[in-house]
Design a protein around this nucleic acid. Structure first.
Lengths: 191, 191
DNA sequence: CGATGCTGGCTAATCAGGTTAGCTTTGCGG
DNA sequence: CCGCAAAGCTAACCTGATTAGCCAGCATCG
């Protein structure tokens, strides 16, 4: 019996592919093992278990998303940057329906790459908002608002929570446009 | 052995309580059965299985949320109505951390009460937006935007996705205030 | 070239949770 | 008081996760 020759990266990458095909909830060690051509317990030579796999998958997906957000925003200012980033965000979620939910897991403090990926993602958003002149508490609030809006839309869309699938593009663009207006006049209330 | 005397309502209600205590993901037929003082298979006399229980729980939670949203918005117009509804939304999610995720499940077309609850919840949002003069496509887009923002924030907050828990109230109020501004000037872009 | 040892992969066994089948018995309606 | 619908039970099985302990491929070193 020749060895399959797995390592942690192989396993996590295949998990990402499998998750995109069958869904994040249906990603199972059993399915992953059979996909890789090994018995289930063999996976434990490469990942500590199901929780650890989910964490590594989260690190992978978060890093990918961070890179795409950064790339999209690069060289674009203000509303252009915001729209480009928002489109990249939704695009990623739709191209990778199994990986996207993993990006919402809080980074594991014990995994430097995971932490770094999370910081890079938030940093990309922060950078766009700096283009609106937002800093300090305002930038924190605005970042949270933007993350909420983008994640909320994408999550509801993925669940089919919006009734008819038609016109979702228009609704999304309106949402992003309304965030653009908000950021121009932030803070929104005298607080 | 006297009978415990369960029925579907008892079971679903206890499931809701249990979910709030241990978390939606940790809600398990095994835990529910032991909590109710019966053997696990006995639950099948009242619910078809785990999926059906989740669906009934979703109907219950959605109905509760719809009622609270409607009550909060009653008698308040414009920004007042929006703020009251947004506060009620986040309040519900925080008071019922196990039920809230259930509200995101798409209503089961075969369960009229579930469908009605979903319509009532969306209707409450729609009504508030009518106070801004939004109708037709604009109201659809704005409803989606508001749902996205509220759900996104609440979901990220529940996950601990926002780093430090401090100042979340301020960030939420800013988010709602920015939505208020957006709705006043909807549509946000010339499209 | 052959011994050695690391380690990837395996089988077996256990545990938790869900589901089905089929039996028992409560307790209400007549 | 009797009959029977249904509430609850036990037993059995399935999937998935996990742990323990064995075996063999293969790279390295003498």
């Amino acid at each position: 019996m020749p060895r399959v020759g797995l390592n942690q990266q192989t396993v996590v990458r295949e998990a990402a592919r499998l998750a995109d095909e069958v869904g994040y909830q249906q990603l199972t060690l059993a399915a992953l093992a059979s996909r890789l051509g090994v018995a289930l317990p063999s996976l434990y030579k490469h990942v500590r278990g199901a929780d650890a796999l989910a964490q590594k998958l989260s690190a992978l997906a978060t890093a990918e998303l961070a890179t795409e957000l950064t790339t999209a925003a690069a060289g674009r200012a203000g509303g252009d940057g915001l729209r480009a980033m928002a489109d990249a965000y939704r695009d990623y979620a739709r191209r990778h329906p199994g990986r996207y939910p993993a990006t919402q897991q809080v980074p594991d403090p014990n995994d430097p790459e995971h932490v770094e990926a999370g910081e890079r993602a938030v940093g990309a958003i922060f950078a766009v908002l700096r283009g609106y002149g937002l800093t300090g508490d305002d930038a924190v609030d605005a970042t949270r608002a933007l993350r909420s809006a983008l994640h909320g839309f994408v999550a509801l869309e993925a669940e089919g929570g919006f009734g008819l699938p038609r016109e979702l593009d228009r609704s999304y663009h309106q949402l992003v446009a309304s965030m653009d207006i908000s950021f121009r006049s932030w803070p929104a209330s005298a607080g």
